[in-house]
Design a protein around this nucleic acid. Structure first.
Lengths: 208, 208
DNA sequence: GAACACTCTTGACACCTTGCCAACAAGCGG
DNA sequence: CCGCTTGTTGGCAAGGTGTCAAGAGTGTTC
């Protein structure tokens, strides 16, 4: 028995440890509401002292915000991979791409977009807003609009409106399971088609 | 000096006290996120001992749920006042009715639908769901569907999807002010028209 | 290979919040 | 004026969070 002094704990690179804690936190926040997840729970799952969480993220809330931020940040490989065909094809492809992405990180995505109800929270709201804005930009570009368009801000607003529908549809599909993927796809791509082909041209003539 | 023994506190009817605490709580939850409002804050504003809150509502969370529930309950005078004309007219009228209602209770409505993103919470989610469900039912009836329709559940799901867009549009209009009422009206009524005339017929052939 | 230094990690401490409960007292009925 | 009902208070115990000095793993040096 070479009784080598077995270390009680392993020392990791900060980035590594940070990521590990982050992952465990993301899992837990996906399973239970914010208040029902204690830093002790996160520490336990990560096999780590509770204080380490504060060391890396400062605050439970900050850790939570980091999780939300990453869950809502979508990979920017959207536009490049979309076809060039007619509008109907492009909307189909865009929605498909999106549904794929969402189904990969179901839990986290759902948790991030699920409203808790009354009361506003500046930080979370800002993160949600920016994520929506980025996503809307990608969608618009995929649909063939340019950032130089003089109505860009209004276009963004319209698509962000659409984003509300996308989120609700995701919940019906993944959470409530009242619609299947095919049905959600139909709803989202038809509506997107309507927006681009029908609504946006009209809206141009109603600027305040 | 008729040194009448000045009472340290007044005794109220249970309903009265309950309502008073409820009101203060609603105010505070409207100003700050759930976690940032302590029962001590509520008690202070109500001029009452903290323990009394637990006595009446049992739990901080229960009080919060009561507030959310009341904020989301909407007046059921929708269907009766809608015209009988062609679909486009009905969608126009329905959206108009809705925008009127919303603009009347801006603050409460906005506070109630603004996502806090603090994760999932069965109870709150259920309350939001039921509110959406009721609203969706009203919309469908206004659009001429019957509750006996064998696809009723799926119809509800689709309209609830639409509800997500309605909320997002309300925020763009009232909160961010990136779209004016006319534009929001166009977006919402056109999309509703698409749903009823185009999407729902298709969805029927895709039931899982 | 032993001592060293660096810093990642721990464990305990103080503070705050929530829910509980027994005692108190306001106001009505006799 | 007295006593009863019960609305109301105030303090206690459990649990959660953030901070911080001390401890221990791991690479480096001689």
């Amino acid at each position: 028995m070479t009784a080598g002094s077995a270390p009680k704990w392993r020392r990791l690179e900060p980035d590594e440890r940070r990521e590990q804690i982050f992952t465990c936190a993301a899992e837990l926040f996906g399973e239970r509401p914010y208040a029902a997840v204690s830093t002790a729970d996160i520490a336990a799952r990560a096999g780590v002292a509770r204080g380490l969480i504060n060391h890396y993220f400062g605050t439970k809330r900050a850790l939570y915000l980091a999780v939300v931020r990453r869950a809502l940040t979508l990979p920017p490989d959207a536009v490049t991979t979309l076809p060039d065909g007619p509008l109907a094809e492009r909307t189909d492809a865009a929605v498909d791409w999106f549904l794929d992405m969402v189904s990969k990180q179901q839990k986290t995505w759902l948790a991030a977009i699920t409203p808790e109800g009354i009361g506003r929270d500046e930080e979370v709201e800002r993160i949600l807003d920016e994520a929506d804005r980025d996503a809307a930009g990608l969608v618009l570009e995929a649909m063939g609009f340019s950032r130089d368009d003089d109505r860009w801000e209004q276009l963004i607003a319209v698509v962000r409106t659409y984003a509300g529908m996308v989120k609700a549809a995701s919940r019906e599909w993944l959470d409530r399971e009242t619609l299947n993927r095919s049905q959600v796809h139909t709803v989202l791509s038809r509506v997107l088609h309507t927006l681009v082909a029908d609504v946006i041209p009209r809206a141009r003539n109603q600027s305040s």
